[in-house]
């Protein structure tokens, strides 16, 4: 850490800066904490006294969100969909990334760039052909259809991330394995994959986070309430509030169901998440 500042002392501007930064951090924590508290309060109390704590202890909000508003079913859909897509995604991307990182031919460089281009394409640009395509094979309004899209559309990022990881692994171990008579397939499965475990976990994690929050594709491709994912359930809940009167207590309970798993994951694996997400920029 840099310690030059002690020499010229901490001037007033610096102290003001530190104060403002803490204010910002407290704001973030405050919003999160307020959300958690509001999820346990009554609708009218939240509105008449947003800063207060009256009617705290309404655990019914969570039951209401979970049962009546379909967050329970949506959680199940989302967990299955996200876990399935992330695993299949890594299973398809890992061999491709390994081939791109290790073959060292001209074509592999071109292919790596070709895949990376996909990261720059906004999904809104290709959503129309995708819709027509899935409509033709009867996969609109189907979790299988959404699963296929999630896997396919997350490929460029995952291949890119894993190519960087495989590229950073030492090649000597693989050479040793080859000399000992292991074929390239076996070398990949038994030597390279275990070595790249960190990268594979990061790829799983980042995709799980991205897909957990994914809204646009779900919005376009899913219509039935039974099939909705969590972000859709939240949007649907906002929709129903326009007719049946709003209930922000239950709304914030639903919001908590979306956020808390991410918060736990962040507390547990925060460093890995942050490093993985900023990898492309800092390297």
């Amino acid at each position: 850490m840099l310690r030059f500042s002690s020499r010229d002392g901490h001037g007033l501007p610096h102290r003001v800066g530190v104060g403002l930064v803490w204010l910002l951090a407290i704001f973030n924590i405050g919003v999160l904490a307020w959300m958690g508290l509001a999820a346990l309060r009554e609708h009218t109390a939240i509105f008449s006294d947003p800063w207060g704590l009256s009617t705290f202890g309404e655990f019914g909000n969570f039951l209401k969100a979970w049962d009546e508003s379909g967050f329970g079913a949506a959680t199940l859909n989302t967990v299955v969909l996200v876990a399935g897509s992330a695993v299949v995604l890594v299973a398809i991307s890992a061999p491709a990334a390994y081939a791109l990182a290790r073959s060292g031919t001209r074509i592999s460089g071109v292919m790596a760039l070709f895949f990376a281009l996909g990261i720059g394409i906004p999904v809104q640009v290709i959503v129309i052909p995708l819709f027509v395509m899935l409509e033709n094979i009867g996969l609109i309004n189907s979790l299988v259809g959404l699963f296929i899209l999630y896997v396919a559309l997350s490929l460029p990022f995952t291949v890119f991330l894993l190519t960087a990881f495989f590229g950073s692994l030492p090649e000597e171990v693989e050479e040793a394995a080859a000399i000992d008579g292991a074929g390239p397939l076996r070398t990949f499965l038994q030597i390279s994959l275990p070595l790249a475990r960190g990268g594979l976990i990061t790829a799983l994690l980042l995709n799980a986070i991205g897909l957990w929050n994914e809204t646009f594709l779900a919005l376009v491709f899913i219509q039935d309430t039974d099939l909705q994912t969590l972000p859709l359930a939240l949007l649907g809940f906002m929709q129903s509030q326009q007719y049946s009167g709003s209930d922000y207590g239950a709304l914030f309970a639903g919001v908590c169901i979306l956020v808390l798993p991410m918060l736990l994951l962040y507390v547990w694996l925060g460093r890995r998440i942050v490093e993985g997400m900023t990898l492309g920029a800092v390297k």
């Binding site: 290790r102 760039l113 990261i119």
Partner: peptide, 23 residues
């Protein structure tokens, strides 16, 4: 959002690993 992050690549290309004599 994860997908947006490592986008740096687009245009930069992924570094070729030691093409060396590997082939």
């Amino acid at each position: 959002m994860a997908v947006a992050s490592a986008t740096a690549v687009a245009g930069r290309g992924v570094r070729r690993t030691k093409a060396s004599a590997a082939s």
